[in-house]
Amino acid sequence: MPEELYEIETDVPSNTVEEFLRMDRMPHIWCPGCGIGTTVNCFAHALETSDLNLEKVAVVSGIGCTGRVAGYVNLDSFHTTHGRAIPFATGLKLANPELKVVVYSGDGDLTAIGGNHFIHACRRNLDMTVILINNFIYGMTGGQVAPTTPMTATASTTPYGNFEQPFNLPYLAESCGAVYVARWTAFHVRHISKAIKEAMAKKGFSFIEILAPCPTLYSRRNKLGDGLDQMVYYQENSEIKHGADTKTVGIDFQSKIIVGKFVDVERPTYLDAMNDYYQKRLGDKYIPYKG
């Protein structure tokens, strides 16, 4: 192979997302073909094209592969404990309501060990955006079954296939009170950026589920090829259905995937509800909470 193929072109302009990333922490830990980095790229693009004051944007992650996102974004960022990104974010947001708080974590982290916090944050309509990367398994620990693993799929702790019914996450979020609910896959990069921008502009609990390939531990074990094969699967089997009834968007093994913006409604946020209610109830005695 000719040597010049390996020469680095130094005059290539740097990628515009770099300013949103901690480039001094590259390379990242994610595997080749993993979809998490793709979604971070989309997140960075969303920040780039938004008019948010980035000093006031904070990212909170739990533990796991997606939990590492907090460590790579060049923002105030918190890598918390397993499952507890949402309650940490709750404290952060309530302490300083000026902040735009984004929780960025995985399916196991947010809906298994963190499931209780997830449903209560939806119910309270806390003003935060939750970006959940769903790779169908626990990646960091070696591919164990998750509450999102499709039935019959093989995981390291379901060697004969999974017989538990997984969560339908958009339905869960909507029924618990989220005001914005969308689902995309790592194939839908422009849709993801747009959804993140929309969600961050939305007051209240906004939730985006993004399906992302885990070639190392999900695809390989289920003989689904590599990351690219999963992208082809997303491309060929995704159906955009904005406003779809979330009851109908559950995912089976290698099934059709309904994507789109399912929910976009208005409801007072936790802090607005608190301030309005106390003002009515306590009158002048109440000191409106401003952080």
């Binding site: 909170v60 918190f78 918390t80 404990t81 507890r84 949402i86 309650p87 940490f88 974010a89 709750t90 404290g91 952060l92 947001k93 309530l94 302490a95 209780n116 916090h117 209560h120 608190m274 106390y278 306590l282 005695k285 109440y286 000191i287 909470y289 401003k290």
Partner: peptide
């Protein structure tokens, strides 16, 4: 509510013990 503080009754003690740390930051 009378002095400008905020109390939240969380869903469990695990949540409470990390929410306070978010608030500190």
């Amino acid at each position: 509510p009378l002095i400008g503080g905020i109390f939240i009754q969380m869903e469990d003690e695990i949540a409470s013990s990390i929410a306070i740390q978010g608030a500190v930051w």
